[in-house]
């Protein structure tokens, strides 16, 4: 689980071009959207594609993403439970 969290942080930074942010700055339980990392709805769509491409998890409704992408810890837990690859 720790490895997955680290992997997710790396991917978030790379996929969303967060050049000014380091892995250490993203806490496992920090909110990714809104006040936390400040991600927005376009980032959520980017993350949905990442779930599909890297973990084989298909979301059809962007609203589902809202809960899953609350924090790295929640994302990691969801992926562990639902991944198909």
């Amino acid at each position: 689980m720790e490895a997955l969290k680290l992997e997710l942080k790396e991917k978030i930074i790379e996929q969303l071009n967060l050049e000014d942010i380091s892995i250490e700055e993203i806490g496992d339980n920090d909110p990714l959207f809104g006040d936390g990392l400040g991600l927005d709805s376009i980032d959520a769509l980017e993350l949905i594609v990442m779930l599909d491409k890297d973990y084989g998890i298909k979301l059809t409704d962007p609203k589902e993403g809202k809960k899953i992408f609350e924090s790295v810890a929640i994302m990691a837990a969801y992926i562990t439970e639902n991944r198909t690859k």
């Binding site: 996929q15 376009i42 769509l45 980017e46 594609v49 599909d52 491409k53």
Partner: peptide, 10 residues
């Protein structure tokens, strides 16, 4: 046509 992300389209 798979695994496309919106940013570059937007």
């Amino acid at each position: 046509e798979q695994f496309l992300t919106p940013t570059s389209f937007i």
